[in-house]
């Protein structure tokens, strides 16, 4: 009733029955029906239908003379929203780059042979991993000065750059954890054989260990990027230009309550269309790599 029918085991394979292994050994299930139902094509169709229905009802209600129809309102603001969304993407890419770089370094420090460094890196990681993203954004926006003076040249420190820094902090912390986990998952024999071949610790890390961690980190890294992208509208709260801020300006310029629902749905769809393919690719990669773990 609640469970899907239990498939019959393949009789051609000897010893076909599942072994009750510790949970780590379970391979993720092949999500066939989901794949059939939620491939990019069907979803695009679903959301095309959704948007069409919004637009459709809007046409039907379009009885008030002198008022623009809802689709034409959405269309009118689309260039502005696109520009705003461009900022979101830009902020996400920059934060990801900065956060990844810092995170890899911090992750390597987390497995340092020096106790103090290890503990310090761990503390920094835990601190930024457990602090809310929005609070970190406030931290960056309010505590970084408006301008910096380097070699006598005063440069302004714009809000969007502060936002990039604020968002890169949690990215750094998550990356640090992924890198640490992945490094520790490489069998110790790799260290030993590299050492016996005369590699230094740094060389071993760079040439032997880190390349092996890439496969393991990649799905997490992509997922983190999607999460980061979905966090970018937070910058609107601290007054940095983005799609959410533009949307709210557009809504107050229109001053029409009937535009609210379609407009917010429209923005949600923008993000969905960008983030969903990333999460699809992530789960594909996870499934492909999980066999080898």
């Amino acid at each position: 009733m609640w469970l899907r029918p239990i498939p019959e085991p393949d009789a051609r394979v000897p010893g076909h029955m599942d072994v009750l292994l510790p949970r780590r050994s379970h391979q993720p299930p092949a999500l066939n029906w989901r794949e059939a139902l939620f491939n990019p094509l069907t979803l695009t169709l679903v959301f095309a239908a959704l948007i069409a229905s919004v637009i459709g009802t809007a046409w039907a209600q379009d009885g008030t003379p002198g008022q623009a129809s809802i689709p034409s309102v959405l269309l009118k603001w689309t260039p502005l929203l696109a520009q705003g969304f461009g900022y979101n993407i830009l902020i996400s890419v920059l934060s990801m780059a900065v956060g990844t770089l810092l995170g890899v370094l911090l992750g390597i420090l987390q497995v340092s042979p020096v106790f103090v460094i290890r503990k310090f890196a761990w503390l920094v990681t835990q601190f930024f991993r457990n602090a809310p993203w929005l609070v970190l954004l406030f931290y960056a926006i309010l505590l970084i000065p408006f301008q910096v003076t380097i070699f006598g040249v005063t440069m302004p420190f714009p809000g969007w750059l502060k936002a990039v820094i604020g968002l890169s902090l949690p990215v750094m912390a998550y990356m640090s954890e992924y890198v640490r986990g992945a490094i520790q998952s490489v069998p110790s024999g790799q260290w030993e054989s590299a050492e016996s071949l005369g590699f230094s610790r740094g060389q071993t890390m760079r040439m032997v260990i880190l390349p092996q961690t890439v496969k393991r980190i990649l799905p997490n890294w992509m997922n983190l990027y999607a999460v980061l992208t979905m966090a970018t509208p937070l910058v609107s709260i601290i007054g940095v230009d983005d799609i959410m801020g533009y949307t709210r300006s557009a809504l107050s310029a229109e001053g029409r309550p009937d535009v609210l629902i379609p407009m917010y749905l429209y923005v949600l769809c923008w993000f969905f269309i960008y983030c969903y393919p990333i999460s699809l690719m992530t789960s594909r990669l996870e499934r492909r790599y999980s066999v080898k773990l």
């Binding site: 979905m230 937070l234 629902i261 407009m263 917010y264 749905l265 949600l268 969905f272």
Partner: peptide, 18 residues
């Protein structure tokens, strides 16, 4: 699928404002 792939802040705005 939809809630996992859209920003929680926009969801919150959708509920509260829209």
């Amino acid at each position: 699928t939809f809630f996992r792939n859209t920003p929680p802040l926009v969801q919150l705005y959708f509920f509260f404002f829209a």
